[in-house]
C-alpha cells in the first residue's frame, strides 16, 4: 500500500472533512514498496527518495534549532530556549555519565545532532506530501502507486520507446524505513567515532589488543569471533531502529487501509510515529554513546584497575 495509492483513493472519496483526509493520506509506505534504486553508479545503487528525504530531514533539524535559538536571554528565556536547553542538558549529562566527565563534552555535538536528525527523520510521515512528477511522460497508472511500472502504457513524447520519468519528487516517508540510512549512521558512529576514539585513546596497539580479548593462546582462537562480535554491534544498532520504524509504518498503513483511508488513526500516529519515533531515536543515540564509551571511557578506577 503506497502513499500515492492512499492519496489517489482519497481523491475518489467525497471529502466531508478535508483535514482528516489529508492526515489519513500520510499513511507511510512499507519498505517492500519503497522506490527502487533510481541511479546506478560504479556498481552502487542510489535511491534518490532516501537521499532527498535525508536532506530534507537534516535541513528541518537545522532550521528547527535555529528557530528555537533566536532571541536567547539569560533572565527571560522564551519557551523555545527552554526546550533547547533541556535537550542539550539531557545529552550533556548522558555523554558525561557514559563516557566520562572530561571526554564527554567533546562528543556532545555529534550525539546531539544525531538525535535531532533521527527525530526529524522519524517525524517525516506526519507531513502528507504525495509523489509529484515534473516533466515526465504521461502514463496510465494501473496499480495507483504513483510511479511508472514496466508494462503500463504511456505517451511516448520523444519517440524513443522508453518511458521518460522526468523528475519525481518522492512522497514523504521516514528515511529510516530504508536500511541504508541506519547502517550508514551505525558505521559513522560505531566504526569511525567509536573505533576511531579507541585508536586515539589506546593507540593502534591497544586497540588491536581488544581483538585478542582474553589474551594468550585462547585469544588467537577468539580473534574471528571478536571480529564478528564487533560486526554484530553494527547489525544490532541499525536493525533496531529500522525494524521499529518499519513495523510502525506497516501497522499504520494497515489500519489506514482497514479504515478505508477515510478517518486518520490519530491515536496510533501519536503512539507509533511520534512516541516510538522519539524513543527509538533516543535509544539509537544512547547505544551509539555506549559503544563509543566502550572504546573511549575514562578508567573507572585509575588506582589499581587492570580491566
Amino acid at each position: 500500500m503506497h502513499r500515492g495509492e492512499v492519496m489517489s483513493r482519497m481523491g475518489k472519496k467525497a471529502a466531508p472533512a478535508a483535514l482528516v483526509l489529508l492526515l489519513a493520506g500520510c499513511g507511510p509506505a512499507h519498505a517492500g514498496m519503497r522506490n527502487p534504486p533510481s541511479l546506478v553508479l560504479w556498481g552502487m545503487s542510489f535511491n534518490h527518495a532516501t537521499i532527498i528525504h535525508c536532506a530534507i530531514a537534516a535541513a528541518a533539524a537545522y532550521i528547527l534549532v535555529r528557530l528555537l535559538a533566536v532571541n536567547l536571554s539569560r533572565d527571560h528565556p522564551r519557551r523555545g530556549q527552554v526546550v533547547l536547553e533541556t535537550i542539550v542538558d539531557t545529552f550533556l549529562v548522558l555523554a558525561r555519565q557514559t563516557i566520562g566527565p572530561k571526554r564527554g563534552g567533546w562528543y556532545l555535538p555529534y550525539i546531539g545532532s544525531l538525535f535531532l536528525f533521527l527525530f526529524a527523520c522519524n517525524m517525516m510521515s506526519l507531513f502528507p506530501v504525495p509523489n509529484l512528477h515534473f516533466g515526465g511522460e504521461t502514463f496510465n497508472d494501473y496499480n495507483n502507486n504513483g510511479l511508472y511500472d514496466p508494462g503500463e502504457p504511456f505517451i511516448d513524447m520523444n519517440g524513443d520507446g522508453v518511458h521518460n520519468p522526468g523528475f519525481q519528487f518522492p512522497a514523504f516517508e521516514e528515511p529510516t524505513t530504508d536500511l541504508t540510512l541506519p547502517l550508514t549512521l551505525a558505521v559513522i558512529f560505531v566504526v569511525i567515532l567509536g573505533h576511531g576514539s579507541g585508536i586515539r585513546f589506546h593507540g593502534v596497539r591497544g586497540y588491536l589488543k581488544e581483538y585478542f580479548s582474553p589474551g594468550g593462546l585462547i585469544g588467537i582462537g577468539m580473534f574471528p569471533l571478536n571480529v564478528v562480535g564487533k560486526l554484530a554491534e553494527l547489525i544490532s544498532i541499525s536493525f533496531r531502529i529500522f525494524g521499529n520504524i518499519f513495523g510502525g509504518a506497516i501497522i499504520m498503513s494497515t489500519v489506514s487501509g482497514l479504515l478505508h483511508y477515510f478517518v486518520a488513526p490519530l491515536g496510533m500516529y501519536g503512539y507509533f510515529s511520534v512516541f516510538c519515533g522519539v524513543i527509538q531515536a533516543f535509544v539509537f543515540t544512547m547505544l551509539a554513546t555506549t559503544y563509543i564509551s566502550m572504546e573511549a571511557a575514562e578508567d573507572p578506577d585509575p588506582g589499581h584497575g587492570d580491566a
Binding site: P214, I218, P300, D301, G305, D306, A307
Partner: peptide, 14 residues
C-alpha cells in the same frame, strides 16, 4: 574489589 571480581567474572564466563 572491582578488579578482582571483574577478572573472576571474565574467567568464569570464558
Amino acid at each position: 574489589e572491582y578488579s578482582q571480581i571483574f577478572r573472576t567474572m571474565l574467567v568464569g564466563q570464558a
